[in-house]
Write a protein that binds this DNA or RNA. Structure first.
Length: 587
RNA sequence: CGCGGGGUAGAGCAGUGGCAGCUCGUCAGGCUCAUAACCUGAAGGUCGUUGGUUCGAAUCCAACCCCCGCAACCA
């Protein structure tokens, strides 16, 4: 029986479809909070883990975005170099990923030699194909520092309300938008010295030249989330225009002007670097190449075809899923596709942008400066990885902004994770443990009930479909329905009563329940890998769940009659005391 | 008229022309294997407002009211 086609959408993935899971690159300035996790890390991980269980070749890549003003601002603040910021925070992100059990094929960073080279190559290709132009624009320039300053390094007096510490683009006090050049007495935020406008020449990506091709690109994307499609079409409708891709900075990737045609050469290019969004999206490609290189043997060969990055990028059967927060939409549905089309028409374009809205904290926007922040490490340490992953998967902001509410967090843990699923597993295993005479091998070997089998098969099919459409919250709900079904099955069959008159009937009921549990173990693995590994041990499997390419483990399997379960059984999850938690989190 | 999203049961959401649904909570009953967990049943909604189209509107159209996001560090 094949469940691979999904007739309702254009998402038809086969058993060997190569899947690229591209996760947005976080700025490496040290403040990854639960919003980031709900935004893209967790959904990407669940999606990737599912596809690996399906036996598909999966390449999940991301890395630390080391360039851009957020990094230089952090460096100024801590009075160190940008490189030191990177060296300090990149390992922290690696650590966090490990803590959260987010499993990448490769999590790298944008300061690698490989990334520099691929970014420069792609830029040169765009230039040779006629998509790069140069243009003179006025920018803030500090005579004293002898350099151009990005907008966010400039402040001055608001022309509307006279507020003296206004930002250069919008006044903090009266919220008026300040047009370029209207700010009174502009000065450097760092040194306080006056700045003025000075002409500077920059490279631009001519997005307008991609208008038609991008319109064609979104034409048949009816399976995208409705609001993602609407927003993308909104950009296209308003018309695209050139966007600058270089800055007057000394931190970032240098411009390879020596490789450009003469008419594109530019004075002072050695003082310019690529604008961060330009190089960051290229990371998906460069990380893929880096990962592939890591698997080469001494002769430079790859042992398996799916270890080759080209298996994902130059394969029209491959599917590219991108995971990010909504502020990244434009760069992934417009700029990046344009850059791919403009540099090399044979590369795969994004197939599905899984763009999440924002997670707020008890109704407030995450804001480090206002103290509205919650760190995943804290939640893991105090409440455990499974409760965190379960709750975030449940409230994932797929269609609108959502909230982290402590009261709901406790309720989801206690009433769903513990009471429904955890309790089902524990009541079955402990009952079985207390009655060794129910060992299935001691009775006629029974098959799994048709209704049970049917229910499990349907769950695999429906959950798989939902995950492929990136409807993860709904997928989780569907899995919990199977757990409820298990509880009901146990109740209806009353093994604790039946055992007094018929050991065989009780044994058969337990055998069916073990089958349900064993399949839930696979179904929940993408969402709760840690708990499912624990369950795997309790069920006395010799190996943890390890996905293998070309082997489909995402399917119904009856319980093995011979299999014994572990001596020591304990509940998978802990209940929380609502009062205590609310007190502790002061709400 | 900057762009976009939303207003459906106490809470969170699904439902895009055909008998108002799901999860949680609440109440009542059952069960006692299980972490006071599980099972059954019930209560609870004039679907933001007003008008229109239609045999029929939560759903389509028009106007209006109210929330929120992006354009500012931030997924």
């Amino acid at each position: 029986m094949s469940y691979d086609n999904n007739p309702e959408t254009q998402i038809n993935l086969s058993d060997n479809t190569p899947i690229l899971v591209a996760v947005a690159w976080p700025y490496v300035n040290g403040d990854i909070h639960v919003g980031h996790i709900a935004g893209c890390f967790l959904s990407a991980d669940i999606f990737a883990r599912y596809n690996r269980l399906k036996g598909r070749p999966v390449l999940m890549v991301s890395g630390s975005d080391c360039h851009g003003t957020p990094i230089t601002v952090a460096a100024d603040k801590e009075k160190v170099t940008p490189q030191e910021i990177v060296d300090k925070y990149h390992p922290k992100v690696l650590n966090l990923i490990k803590t959260l059990e987010i499993e990448y094929e490769l999590y790298t960073k944008t300061t690698t030699e490989n990334h520099y080279k691929i970014t420069q190559d792609l830029f040169v290709a765009l230039a040779k194909n006629g998509y790069i132009s140069k243009k003179v624009t006025p920018q803030y320039y500090s005579e004293k520092d002898n350099k151009f300053l990005p907008d966010r390094y400039v402040e001055g007096t608001c022309p509307f309300c006279g507020f003296e510490d206004s930002r250069s683009d919008q006044c903090d006090k009266c919220s008026s938008v300040i047009e370029e050049g209207k700010l009174i007495k502009p000065r450097s935020k760092n040194t306080g010295s006056p700045v003025e406008f000075k002409d500077t020449e920059h490279y631009f990506l001519d997005l307008d030249k991609f208008q038609l091709e991008l319109e064609n690109f979104v034409e048949n994307k009816s399976y995208w989330r409705e609001w993602v499609l609407a927003e993308t079409k909104g950009w296209l409708k308003r018309g695209l225009y050139e966007r600058s891709i270089t800055r007057d900075l000394d931190w970032g990737i240098p411009i390879p002007t020596d490789r450009l045609p003469d008419e594109l050469k530019l004075d002072g290019a050695e003082n310019k670097r690529f604008y961060v969004w330009f190089d960051a999206v290229i990371g998906y490609l460069s990380a893929s190449v880096e990962w592939s290189d890591m698997h080469k043997d001494n002769d430079g060969n790859l042992p398996k075809p799916w270890l080759d990055w080209k298996h994902y990028w130059y394969n029209e059967d491959a599917r590219h899923y991108y995971f990010m927060g909504k502020d990244n939409l434009f760069f992934h549905t417009i700029s990046w596709p344009a850059m791919l089309i403009g540099s090399d028409k044979n590369k795969q374009l994004p197939f599905y942008p899984a763009i999440n809205n924002f997670l707020n904290l008890e109704g407030d926007k995450f804001s480090k400066s206002r103290g509205v922040v919650l760190y995943p490490e804290y939640v893991v340490e105090n409440y455990g990885i499974d409760s965190l992953r379960y709750y975030l998967a449940k409230v994932m902001p797929e269609n609108q902004d959502a909230d982290w509410i402590w009261k709901d967090f406790v309720a989801a843990n206690n009433n769903e994770l513990v009471a429904n699923f955890g309790n089902f597993v524990f009541r079955v295993l402990s009952f079985y443990k207390a009655h060794p005479e129910l060992d299935p091998t001691k009775h006629i070997l029974f098959a799994v009930d048709n209704t049970v089998q049917q229910e499990i098969k349907e769950t695999f099919y429906e959950v798989g479909r939902l995950i492929e459409e990136c409807k993860l919250a709904e997928a989780l709900q569907r899995i919990m329905k199977l757990s409820s079904f298990g509880n009901k099955y146990f109740n209806d069959n009353e093994p604790w009563k039946v055992i007094k008159t018929s050991e065989m009937a009780a044994s058969e009921a337990i055998y069916n329940c073990l089958t349900i549990i064993d399949n839930l173990r696979i179904l929940l693995h993408p969402i709760l890998p840690s708990a499912m590994n624990k369950l795997t041990r309790m069920l006395d499997y010799t190996d943890l769940i390890v996905p293998e390419v070309e082997i489909n483990k995402w399917e119904y399997k009856p319980w093995n009659h011979e299999q014994k379960i572990e001596e020591f059984i304990e509940p998978l999850f802990k209940k929380f005391d609502e009062k205590e938690v609310l007190e502790k989190e002061k709400k």
